[in-house]
């Protein structure tokens, strides 16, 4: 058997796996599904674009496309950060509260306390890293379930948003250069999109090409085997949570600069969208595995849908309905393919 490239190796490997175990049920159908499945999301996205393009005016205009991209930038940063714990089989429900705290804390420091922006950013990042480290410690070392630990953290962080801001809206006094930076374009491309792209690339290199990424995948693939092979599973898990909160707080700071206004609970609404994006991502490209580029596509899908629905003139709450539905569809889709594959 000649194997010209890695991609074909995987395909032939799957065939061989089936041969070796001699236990596939219906391989023909499975292979067909496996070929179509990773394309499901792109096809769905294309369908949405075509539909919105015909059904609305202005959906395919340059201005609107730029808008969708600009609106996607910050959610992409958060969702890509969330992908790291997800790859490890963990998750973080405190990302939204954390991004919110970063927004409020940074805004309070620069706008109300008059702190130098660089120091304000450092303090904000330090606070969020502390929160991430606490999450990581509680989950990886103490062994608390991520579900409850990160919900608790989330509630705590929401409280802190009110405490830090004194429950008062913060506006005015934001550093002009940073505000301008966050709203600027480089050529036709919003600067924040470029920032997001850099973070996406960094996350991809980290996950796919680095030692840490290998360890993350090993922990996600088989934590017990990773431990017995000498991987420091607990440290890897904790670091994953720290990286996740780091991404969320960067997005929060950028959000504050972009809006030049901050108020508790009025920050980035990224909790459900990020999970939706990551799970759509797990149904894209590498099927059944969370992956960085899949997550990016997932964010774009949710943003395109939200934008298109607004242009259609449907009520605002439709976005929530749509997001819930699309998350369920992504999960069901993944489940059906998995069942076909194993049964």
């Amino acid at each position: 058997m000649t194997i010209p490239s890695e991609r074909t190796t995987l395909a032939s490997a799957q065939t061989r796996m089936a041969d070796a175990s001699s236990a596939p049920s219906d391989k023909a159908r499975r292979t067909a599904l496996e070929m179509i499945a990773p394309l499901g999301v792109p096809i769905m996205t294309l369908g949405m674009v075509v539909y919105f393009g015909f059904a609305t005016t202005g959906f395919l205009s340059i201005g609107n496309i730029t808008d969708v991209c600009a609106n996607s930038a910050l959610p992409v940063i958060v969702a890509v950060g969330l992908t790291i714990p997800l790859v490890m089989g963990e998750f973080d429900l405190s990302i939204s509260a954390l991004a919110g705290l970063a927004t409020v804390l940074y805004a309070q420091l620069v706008a109300k306390e008059g702190v130098d922006p660089a120091i304000a950013i450092l303090v904000t990042l330090a606070a969020s890293l502390a929160a991430g480290a606490f999450n990581g410690f509680m989950i990886a070392y103490v062994g608390l379930p991520a579900l409850v630990a990160t919900i608790a953290m989330s509630s705590f962080l929401v409280g802190m948003q009110f405490y830090v801001s004194g429950s008062v809206q913060i506006y005015g006094g934001f550093p002009e250069t940073l505000v301008a930076f966050s709203r600027s374009n480089i050529g036709p491309v919003p600067t924040l999109v470029i920032v997001a792209a850099i973070i996406v690339l960094g996350a991809w290199v980290l996950l796919e090409k680095s030692v840490f990424g290998r360890q993350v995948k090993a922990v996600g693939g088989n934590a017990e085997a990773a431990r017995l092979a000498g991987v420091d599973v607990r440290r890897t898990r904790a670091l994953g949570f720290i990286l996740c909160t780091f991404a969320a707080s960067i997005a929060g700071i950028l959000f504050a600069n972009k809006q030049a206004v901050a108020y508790p609970l009025a920050g980035l609404d990224v909790l459900l969208p990020s999970f939706t994006a990551a799970f759509i991502g797990a149904a894209t490209f590498r099927f059944g595995e969370f992956n960085i580029f899949g997550t990016v596509v997932g964010v774009l899908v949710t943003q395109i849908a939200a934008n298109g629905l607004i242009l259609l003139g449907v009520p605002n709450y439709t976005t929530y309905v749509f997001q819930g539905v699309i998350l369920l569809v992504a999960l069901i889709f993944a489940r059906v393919v998995a069942l076909r594959g194993t049964n």
């Binding site: 090993a218 693939g221 990773a226 092979a229 595995e289």
Partner: peptide
């Protein structure tokens, strides 16, 4: 269960 990462 203890040594192999099947997808890797």
């Amino acid at each position: 269960a203890n040594a192999v990462f099947p997808l890797a």
